[in-house]
Amino acid sequence: MDRVPIIKIGKYLLATIQTDVQDNVAVALQEDLAARIIAARARLVLLDISALQIVDSFIGRMIADISGIAKLLDAEVIVVGMQPAVAITLVELGLTLSGVRTALNVESALAMAGIRDQN
């Protein structure tokens, strides 16, 4: 099974979903990120989904869950780079991902988190 790579950059973690993922890869990402948040004492996680061509209800729930898990671990997830067609489709599907922070790209995510100049 493939795993989504997670890299540590300064005080934050960057997880980039690089291809169409099957369900167990998304589930593994939840566990991997939770472990890495603790190990790295990270307060911010950028979840880059710009390469994802679709987000269905399962992957959408994973994204919402990852965000919720991180909150409980005193970290924040910013979902980066959602494609416009994905956003429109998600809302029509009935999934608005309320409570999940998003940014259009990594740069604005870092600016949002106020740590752009610290790295």
Binding site: D23, Q53, I54, D56, F58, A85, I88, T89, E92, L93
Partner: peptide
């Protein structure tokens, strides 16, 4: 269109799962 591709692929994914 890219949007229509996205919608039908998403629908297919739901049903297949």
């Amino acid at each position: 269109s890219l949007l229509d591709q996205t919608k039908i692929v998403t629908a297919a994914s739901e049903l297949a799962r």
